[in-house]
Design a protein around this nucleic acid. Structure first.
Lengths: 99, 99
DNA sequence: CTAGCATGTAAGCAATCACTTACCGTTAGC
DNA sequence: GCTAACGGTAAGTGATTGCTTACATGCTAG
């Protein structure tokens, strides 16, 4: 049920913006916070949430913490989305849930 | 940016449960609310949110309102997710956003 | 060793949100 | 026409959440 966490975390616009910025590659917190309409501590908190959801990973580089995208964190969400197109599978799962 | 609404709406567990129940086919509100740990009005409110996000559609049948899944509402979210795997596209979009 | 930068954490606050109860309109059966 | 079932809406409330400022920690340069 990790897709639930991914959904909850990505629902916030600011947090999603931070996440999207990581598409361009690993970045330190300062770079991620630059230009955003919120304070740097706010971004730190968002990164913590993203990390807990398995959507980013962190590596220390001297005084910097370099955050990078973790695509595996999106896999479950992707799979969950797919269940809405595969009707046979969906019907089956629905049946299982009843028992 | 409809994927943003989809994310926000699907982030709530109860609302997601209602949405998932519709995988098994169209249902009236009563059926959707049955067994859920929340009141029927709460489900009505969730359905309204789902409808606003384009994730479900509603049809009247006598005194009943039959809700059904609207898979097109998930398309943008699916596409957005895909942008995280296509690195070339991602880099391009990132570049565009800067200007 | 001290100054300064980069970042995480704590505390507090205002806004949002999901929920409840109460109520209202609408359709169907007798 | 009454009456009951179905379901949308209003108002109020407690919990959650995202934000801010202030502070604590850790690394590095000189």
């Amino acid at each position: 049920m990790a897709y639930a966490n991914a959904l909850a975390v990505l629902a916030d616009p600011t947090r999603r913006k931070v996440f999207e910025r990581l598409r361009a590659g690993p970045r330190p917190v300062n770079a991620l916070a630059a230009g955003l309409p919120v304070s740097r501590p706010a971004v730190s908190q968002h990164l913590k949430a993203l990390k807990n959801a398995g959507l980013v990973e962190e590596r220390s580089e001297g005084v910097r913490r370099i955050y990078s995208l973790r695509r595996e964190g999106l896999m479950e969400l992707r799979d969950w989305l797919d269940t809405f197109w595969d009707d046979a599978l969906a019907a089956f799962k629905e049946e299982v849930e009843k028992t």
